[in-house]
């Protein structure tokens, strides 16, 4: 059984048919990059995987749990599916440590000490162990995004969803965040990334999904997809972004 099983998923925004029958199976430990033009449905698909968006048809099963928009189901899912956002979405009034320990304490019911221990460990992983008591506003964008990754990791997810997590960063800060992702990838974390970092998708990713007009237009082993695009749409896209 794959870790993420997406079966014929359709999604509409009003009359706008945004996802047109998505089928996707992702195994534990895979690093999957979703690429495609703006508006092709990448974010929508990602957000359907953890229940941030509802879908109108088909089914999604993650870690043997059906994804529905039911609140208690979402809470259960949150222990298996982490998400990192383009704009970090750290809680500005909480320190880095508090940001990271909040959900483990409230949702995983860890004690304060256990949660703090976890926080130090995940901060170490993203190279920010000295920022435990800083506020998000005191950090650079790259550091904030690494804290956001750490915050997700503290919930011990089986899969991490990343939606253009380097797009809001100054170019010189992109590298430090990609490096964290690369570390996670080598450690066997399952990653599903919507990204415009084509080099990362090709070199670090196992698989690339090219989305076009709400469909998985083309997909395959990362290097092969970039080397031999099978459709003119992907060819055009690659020419435009590389």
């Amino acid at each position: 059984m794959p870790l993420v099983n997406i079966d014929n998923v359709h999604k509409y925004y009003g009359d706008n048919h945004v996802l047109k029958g998505i089928d996707l199976r992702i195994d534990a430990g895979e690093v999957v990059s979703i690429i495609g033009r703006s508006g092709s449905g990448k974010s929508t698909l990602l957000r359907c995987i953890n229940g941030l968006e509802t879908y109108s048809e088909g089914g999604i099963i993650v870690d043997q749990m059906e994804v529905t928009d039911d609140d208690s189901q979402i809470r259960k899912l949150s222990k298996s599916v982490g998400m990192v956002f383009q704009h970090f979405n750290l809680f500005p009034h909480l320190t880095v440590g508090q940001n990271i320990t909040l959900a483990p304490k409230l949702v995983r019911k860890l004690s304060a000490e256990e949660a703090a221990e976890t926080a130090r460990e995940v901060l170490q992983k993203v190279g920010l162990q000295d920022k435990f008591d800083s506020f998000p506003g005191e950090l650079s964008g790259g550091q904030q995004q690494r804290v956001a990754i750490a915050r997700s990791l503290a919930m011990r997810p089986k899969v991490l969803l990343c939606d253009e997590i380097t797009s809001a960063l100054d170019p010189e800060l992109v590298g430090e965040v990609l490096k964290v992702l690369e570390t996670l990838a080598t450690e066997g974390m399952t990653l599903i990334l919507v990204t415009h970092e084509m080099n990362f998708a090709r070199d670090i990713g196992d698989r690339v999904i090219f989305m076009h007009q709400g469909k998985v237009w083309e997909s395959g082993e990362a290097k092969a997809v970039f080397a031999n695009p099978q459709t003119p749409e992907l060819q055009t896209f690659i020419n435009a972004v590389l």
Partner: peptide, 17 residues
């Protein structure tokens, strides 16, 4: 900001939390 609510939801916090 909507992102704050989405982050909280993704982390599994209840509505009251």
């Amino acid at each position: 900001p909507k992102g704050q609510l989405e982050a909280a939801r993704t982390l599994g916090l209840s509505r009251v939390q």
